[in-house]
Design a protein around this nucleic acid. Structure first.
Length: 804
DNA sequence: AGCACGCCGACT
DNA sequence: GTCGGCGTGCTC
């Protein structure tokens, strides 16, 4: 009898994107499990891999098959569900299986590959340059030689067998352990020890006597020093006597900064109650039903989530809650933690690698029952999921932009079918796709039309900035908005000013020749950062110091345009010198926790005006905010994206929802140069359905989702002609393969036509139901991988792209 | 993707 | 004669 493991290896390449068979040594056979990570020899090196199946036979000949080198997990890190899900993702998004598997785990569990050179002979045999390096240690990372340009010497030394090189595979993250003291649980022994201590060792005696009252306890050494009144040396001595021992205890890193108070259920409105009943019915009947919870801002969606989760927990099941990254503020997570306490794990990008790993371990080890997290939390390894919630389901952050290009909504629905549990998609402004599905009864629509505390929605004024210009007002504030700001300042109420960031980003311009500083690698202008006087490319990271003279004409008339928010801040200071302003944008939220600090300061009333970008549109819920101003609603409207109108409407509705959420009524001003555009006009009434109807009509005419599906193909190369040529080849081939009901648009240059020194072309495919499409695209990828890739072409396929 | 193998040009 | 360039092909 032999044991054979099928392993997916950690090599993202087409020819090896399949399981490889490995022998399992008899002593490993009893503990190896499907879903465990292993170290396996692959070609000339060792790599990490995932066991996807275990069997007792193989088609591989015995002289070819190799054994598993090491089992890395005692407990498997992936469930059967996750392995199934990975196969589905591979099909659905056309990605490598290994990418899908890695996406489900915290990065701490990924492999770290290191090459270590070890000295094999006397150091004198080596050339002097190498001697110098090996003097510090006989084991040196090969990277050190790369840095010092000593690779050739190293190779020579390897040939002469003076050194050896080994590839080692390590895990990135570690389990954190702390030192604790375990006190002996044996009163007789302890008494004996006390008796045996000489009278001169008073402190030791004192400590052991104290320990007799804490038998068997595991304690922090610092607590012992304090409570028993002894020093570390005394404890050390007592440990040597055998009265206690040091142990390493695994702990979770604690990402929470402060304690939260427990809260109880709020009373539900009739609407909320009906919604909750519908959802709990699905839970009880184990129906994998998808609910679209469409509720106006402030209608109390979160309370419905909380009570649904309580119900799920009572059934002994678990809950997954997804929130867009940007709104994963303590305000939101605290609501969950205050209701469910220690049963909640939080996962978002603000955590360190170690913290993420620990939050994941809490789920894996069954220590928590609820996960609140960003997109990747959809892979939380629960085994008995009772409900999956996507808050703000329309948010584009739920779509991953690189491989595996999955949409968290699709994964949620897949998992709900696996676990026979409902999914709740919540939003005040659902995506057109979801609302359309709800109308077709694919999803169950639940509407909340009233705010939970019966507050009226804020009144919305649309201000035509063209009129302001005619009146000679060239400031960023219309007369009406300026007046309202003054009123709030007088009344000591709070104001939120929102700047639609795009189109306002800062840049450096020469006033003589009009040159705008461009990135060397990308077709995009550099962003000016005042904090360190640098210009940075937000796409590739290219960075230069602000030049003193124009690189084109050597003129010194260089002008910096600060970020939009900085400019607005300056203008506020001029117009309302008494106002205290908090600014929230990429510049002020760079450091960890600054995001929270700003919000907290505002919540405590330390400022009158909160000025910010996208970031402040969500989750903000303070009773004293009575005025919201959108300085320029247009910027997102004119983006070359078929969802521009939808995004603008969503943003305006979200922002407006920040005002008057409690007992003081709210007022909203939306400034625009195109007040007649339906996305702006209809946001005044804050009524979703008229907008939906209007936008659906547009999508129908233009042939966009939800009427058609999309696929985006991108081709890039360092050379423009090559990129264009091969994009053309791809399109020609697709046209020859696909039926005529599929429209293929392109190839055209991408929005950012050059990125990281690569020219990019793209082609958009619009289709209805086309079972042949995915196989055809896979065929295209095959052609690309067998031939084009060698020419330096890069081709990617995104099914269901969000950005075009 | 890596890495070894293998076959041709410029050096001691 | 040898080092080292990168085309080709394989990885249980």
């Amino acid at each position: 009898m032999i044991t054979v493991a099928e392993v997916i290896v950690d090599v993202a390449a087409y020819p090896v994107d399949r399981p490889f068979d490995y022998l399992v040594a008899p002593e490993m056979a009893a503990i190896i499990e499907v879903g465990s990570r292993v170290k396996v020899p692959f070609g000339p090196r060792n790599v990490l891999g995932f066991v996807v199946a275990i069997k007792d036979n193989t088609d591989i000949s015995m002289n070819k098959i190799k054994p598993v080198a090491q089992l890395l997990d005692i407990e498997p890190v992936l469930t059967h569900e996750m392995l199934e899900l990975a196969k589905w993702l591979k099909q659905e998004t056309i990605c490598y299986e290994i990418d899908a598997l890695q996406a489900m785990l915290p990065s701490a569990l990924r492999a770290k590959y290191e090459k270590i050179a070890t000295l094999q002979t006397e150091i004198e045999f080596l050339p002097p340059a190498l001697q110098e390096v090996f003097r510090t240690s006989h084991k040196i990372n090969v990277k050190v030689f790369e840095k010092n340009n000593l690779l050739n010497e190293l190779k020579q030394a390897l040939n002469d067998k003076h050194i050896s090189i080994e590839n080692i595979v390590k895990q990135k993250g570690k389990v954190k352990e702390i030192r604790k003291v375990e006190i002996l649980d044996d009163s007789i022994k302890l008494s004996e020890i006390v008796d045996g201590i000489s009278n001169r060792a008073k402190k030791q005696k004192q400590l052991v006597l104290w320990m007799q009252n804490h038998q068997g306890e595991i304690m922090d050494p610092n607590v012992i020093y304090k409570e028993a009144g002894v020093s570390p040396q005394v404890l050390q001595a007592v440990v040597e006597l055998g009265a206690a021992s040091f142990i390493q205890q695994e702990v979770y890193r604690d990402p929470f900064t402060k304690e939260v108070k427990r809260t109880n259920f709020l009373n539900l409105t009739d609407e909320q109650d009906i919604a909750l009943n519908k959802i709990t019915a699905a839970i009880n009947e184990k129906r994998p039903e998808t609910f679209l919870l469409h509720g106006v801002t402030g209608s109390g969606k979160t309370e419905i989530y909380l009570q649904t989760i309580a119900k799920v927990l009572a059934e002994g099941k678990e809950a997954i809650v997804l929130v867009p990254e940007i709104s994963l503020t303590p305000q939101i997570t605290e609501r969950f933690r205050s209701r469910f306490g220690e049963l909640v794990a939080v996962m978002h990008s603000g955590l360190s690698v170690g913290e993420k790993y620990d939050e994941w371990r809490k789920v894996h080890e069954g220590k928590v029952k609820v996960v609140v997290g960003a997109r990747s939390a959809i892979f939380a390894p629960f085994e008995n999921v009772g409900v999956i919630i996507l808050d703000e389901e329309h948010e584009s952050t739920y779509k991953q932009e690189d491989s595996p290009r999955y949409h968290a909504r699709d994964v949620a629905i897949w998992r709900s079918q696996y676990h026979h549990c409902p999914v709740i998609l919540g939003s005040a402004t659902p995506s057109l796709e979801s609302f359309a599905r709800a109308k077709k009864n694919v999803y169950t629509l639940i509407s909340l039309k009233e705010r939970a505390l019966k507050q009226s929605l804020p009144t919305v004024e649309i201000v035509d900035m063209r009129e302001e210009l005619k009146k000679g007002n060239r400031s960023m504030f219309s007369m009406d908005l300026a007046e309202s700001i003054q009123t709030r300042l007088d009344r000591q109420e709070q104001i939120v000013l929102f700047l639609n960031r795009r189109g306002y980003s800062s840049f450096v311009l020469c006033r003589d020749c009009g040159t705008v500083l461009q990135c060397e690698n990308c077709d995009i202008s550099l962003t000016y950062h005042r904090s360190n006087e640098k210009c940075k490319c937000h796409y590739c990271g290219y960075e230069i110091h602000v030049p003193k003279t124009c690189p084109q004409c050597q003129s010194d008339h260089i002008r910096f345009f600060g970020t939009g928010t900085q400019k607005v801040e300056e203008e506020i200071a001029k117009l309302f010198p008494q106002a205290r302003v908090l600014r929230m944008d990429v510049d002020t939220t760079k450091t960890k926790g600054s995001h929270e600090q700003i919000l907290e300061a505002f919540g405590e009333g330390q400022a009158d005006i909160l000025l910010g970008t996208q970031m402040i549109a969500k989750g903000l819920d303070y009773p004293n905010i009575t005025l919201v101003g959108v300085l320029s609603a247009d910027t997102s409207l004119h983006l070359p994206d078929f969802r521009a109108a939808e995004k603008t409407f969503q943003l305006l509705t979200q922002v407006s929802g920040r005002a008057g959420r409690h007992n003081k009524p709210g007022e909203v001003f939306i400034q625009t140069y195109t007040p007649e555009h339906y996305a702006i006009e209809l946001s005044k009434a804050q009524n979703y359905e008229p907008f939906y109807e209007r936008e659906m009509h547009m999508r129908h005419q233009a042939g966009y989702p939800p009427y058609y599906y999309l696929a985006l193909i991108q081709v890039s190369h360092e050379d423009v002609l090559m990129a264009a040529d091969y994009a053309g080849k791809a399109v020609d081939w697709l046209r020859s393969q696909l039926s005529s009901n599929i429209s293929i648009i392109g190839p055209t240059a991408s929005g950012i036509s050059r990125l990281q020194n690569r020219y990019r072309y793209q082609c958009l495919i619009k289709y209805k139901i086309e079972p042949e499409l995915i196989p055809t695209l896979m065929q295209l990828i095959k052609i690309y991988r067998s031939d084009w890739i060698k020419k330096g072409i890069l081709l990617t396929v995104d099914l269901d792209p969000t950005m075009i």
